[in-house]
């Protein structure tokens, strides 16, 4: 059952089954909360997150800054434990967050390339961590360079590349780390608008070819709708899921789709939800 954190007392369009009942979701979160600090300094970053992602889905998450999106990713990547009482099922098995280490392909906001490794050695790092020999990993990586627009740059060092290329190296590293779930945290946040739009279409191609399941964080509403099968809108702190919208735009999607009435219709709903939340967090911040 595809569940998208329904809040009582609000009219929320219930997500439609995106995968047949027989295929269990890759990941199923229920009652996932996260509090930082103690006593008066206690800050609730996430509250009662309920989310399921089916195999092959592309789910995007938007929300105001500080809505706990990155905390959610850290939990899914196994880097942070959720508060007690959370239920995380991965591949049908209940898991503690730390058991997800090495099971989820995680790409943080910054490319985090290692400056002393060449492009190719950065890309194969996760394979080497898995214990694969360098020769074997290189063989696996070789055909992906043209696909990621990095042909001819294998032997370069990260400081010799542009921001967009570094980001593609980081993406290639993430895609080489073949896992059931791929987490992308604002991968195009630092890119200029034109490069970003090219990268979005390119990412969709790669996603379809490699048949990965992707959870994608962004600040950009257009990006969220353009890429996603579903858009998850999160609330300001504490982060909750405010809205889950199905994006039934046909695929493959081209650049013009962002001006279609269907797109605008979805965008209006998402923006309205975000607007409400931004206002709330602004009032919290100003004490109003």
């Amino acid at each position: 059952m595809m569940a998208g954190g329904a809040m009582p007392g609000r009219t929320i369009p219930q997500p439609v089954e995106a995968v047949p009942e027989t295929a269990p979701p890759i990941v199923e979160l229920a009652n996932v909360s996260k509090t930082f600090g103690q006593g008066r300094q206690e800050v609730s970053a996430l509250e009662h997150i309920r989310l399921a992602i089916g195999r092959g889905e592309f789910v995007t998450v938007v929300g105001p800054s500080g809505c706990g999106k990155s905390t959610l990713f850290n939990i899914l990547a196994g880097l942070t434990e959720a508060d007690p009482g959370a239920s995380i099922r991965y591949g049908g098995q209940p898991r503690a967050a730390k058991e997800l280490l090495g099971k989820v392909a995680f790409m943080p906001q910054r490319d985090l390339l290692l400056p002393w490794r060449r492009v190719v050695d950065n890309a194969i790092l996760p394979l080497q961590v898995e214990g694969m020999s360098r020769a074997e990993a290189l063989k696996r990586a070789a055909p992906m360079f043209p696909e990621f627009g990095l042909a001819g740059f294998e032997k370069h060092y990260p400081h010799q590349l542009s921001g967009g290329m570094r980001q593609r190296v980081a993406l290639m590293r993430t895609f080489l780390f073949e896992r059931d779930l791929t987490l992308l945290d604002e991968p195009f946040g630092a890119l200029d608008a034109l490069t970003r739009s090219l990268m979005q279409r390119w990412l969709l191609e790669v996603w379809q070819r490699h048949q990965r399941t992707i959870l994608f964080i962004t600040h950009d509403v257009d990006e969220a709708i353009f890429l996603g099968d579903r858009v998850v809108v999160m609330t300001a702190r504490p982060g909750r899921i405010k809205l889950v919208l199905d994006v039934k735009l046909p695929r493959p999607r081209d650049a013009e789709i962002v001006t279609s009435p269907e797109f605008i219709q979805i965008k209006r709903q998402v923006l309205a939800a975000i607007e409400e939340e931004s206002l709330k967090s602004f009032q919290q911040a100003t004490g109003g």
């Binding site: 196994g78 280490l101 989820v104 995680f106 943080p108 290692l114 002393w116 080497q128 961590v129």
Partner: peptide, 23 residues
Amino acid sequence: QRVALLRSFGAGDWRVFWSLQVP
């Protein structure tokens, strides 16, 4: 953040030490 990334790949202490901390 780079330590976290390596851990997310499933790297243990030893791997983090040699592949990240030392360089």
